[in-house]
Structure formats: structure tokens, C-alpha cells
Amino acid sequence: MPAFTTQQWVILFLVFVLGWLLGLLSRSTKKWRRAYEAERDARVEEQREHAAAIETAEARIVELERERTAAVARASAAIDPPPASTLDLRRDDLSLIRGLGPEGEQDLNEEGIYRYAQLIGMTRAEEEELEDRLGADRGYVQQEQWREQAQLLQDGEIAEHRARFA
């Protein structure tokens, strides 16, 4: 068996290393490229989803700000007293009306109704709205004749009111 020289051993080692490197490069290039592209695509998709989530959140913020502005306006209107010229501090005894009683009077007061004249001047649509807010059946105000009772009480016809609606 012939003996190799040092120079031959170095050349043989370099050929093996070069073959090994070429083998690695030829096999793994496609695999690593696919992994890189998959990772890149995943990151792009995450960025799109993140941008969509931010857009949805911003739209919700705008909606909530609109609702808040409307609620503040409603609360402000509810808190602000009416002008002094329209402010009437007198209240009629609405509990005298059959079908109301003290609890019903309190409910009407919470709805802003304090006077017989307010009941007398209500339209049919306003009656229905009031019935809905009070949780009463439709037609209850008309059935109990609140307007007629309020008219008699406003005119001071208490005896006739008692005779007709007691």
C-alpha cells in the first residue's frame, strides 16, 4: 500500500470538505427557502390581521364617542332646568285621579307630569308613549278617562268627580 504524502492528505481533505459543502447547499436550499417564505407570509398575514383589528377598534371608538356625546346631551337637557318663564312650581294632586293613586302620581312626576292641564292637553300618541313608559296596557289612559277626570278636578268639580269616578 502506497503511503500518502502530506500534500495528498491535504488535497484529499479539501475535496471531502468541498463535497460536503456542495451536498449541503444542493439539498437544503429549497427547504430553507420554503421555510423562509412561509415565515414571511405568516408575518405579512399577522400584520394584515393586526391592521384590521386596529381599524375595527378605531371604528368602535368613534361609535362610542358619538353615543357618549348624545348621552351627555340628553343628560344635560335632563339636568338643565326649563327657563324661568315656563317654570311652574305648583303641582296638582294627581293621586285623586282614579287609576293612579300615590304611586301613579309619583310615576307621572318622574315623567315630568305635575298638572291636570298636562294630562288634558295630551294627544293620543303622547298617551300611548306614556303608557309604554309606565308599563301600562295600551288604551289604559283612555279607559280610565284620565283627561275627563283631570278636567273636572282642574275646574274644581270635586263633588262631580267623586260621583262619577269613585
Rank of each mutant, 00 (worst) to 15 (best):
P2Y: 04
P2F: 03
A3D: 02
A3R: 06
F4C: 10
F4M: 11
F4E: 07
F4R: 03
T5G: 05
T5P: 12
Q7R: 03
W9T: 13
L14A: 03
L14M: 05
F16A: 13
V17Y: 00
G19Y: 12
G19L: 09
L21E: 00
L21W: 01
L22R: 06
L22I: 09
L25W: 12
L25T: 06
S26Y: 12
R27P: 06
R27A: 15
R27D: 02
T29N: 12
K30V: 13
K30G: 14
K31G: 14
W32A: 14
R33T: 09
Y36L: 08
E39S: 06
A42E: 03
A42R: 13
E46R: 01
E46Q: 06
R48S: 02
A51F: 12
A51E: 03
T56I: 13
A57G: 04
A57Y: 05
A57H: 05
E58Q: 01
I61K: 14
E63Q: 03
E63Y: 01
L64Y: 11
E65Q: 04
E65V: 11
R66K: 05
E67Y: 09
E67D: 06
T69S: 15
A71L: 10
A73N: 05
A73P: 05
A73G: 09
A73Y: 07
A75E: 00
S76Q: 12
I79N: 08
D80M: 13
D80L: 14
D80Y: 13
P81I: 01
T86F: 05
L87I: 09
D88M: 15
L89W: 05
R90A: 10
D92K: 01
L94F: 03
S95I: 10
S95H: 02
L96D: 03
L96E: 01
L96C: 08
G99E: 02
G99W: 00
L100R: 12
G101R: 05
P102R: 04
P102Q: 03
P102K: 01
E103L: 14
E105K: 09
D107Q: 09
L108D: 00
E110R: 14
E111T: 11
E111H: 06
I113D: 02
R115I: 01
Y116V: 02
Q118E: 02
Q118R: 03
L119R: 05
I120Q: 07
G121S: 13
G121R: 10
G121K: 11
M122Y: 10
T123M: 04
R124C: 06
R124F: 06
A125K: 15
E126S: 04
E126M: 10
E127G: 08
R133L: 11
L134D: 14
G135I: 15
G135H: 10
G135C: 14
A136P: 00
G139N: 04
V141A: 05
V141Q: 02
V141G: 08
Q142T: 15
Q143S: 13
E144R: 15
E144Q: 15
W146N: 13
R147A: 10
E148G: 07
E148F: 02
Q149D: 01
A150D: 02
E157P: 09
I158C: 12
I158M: 12
A159D: 04
A159S: 01
E160I: 00
A166K: 11
A166V: 15
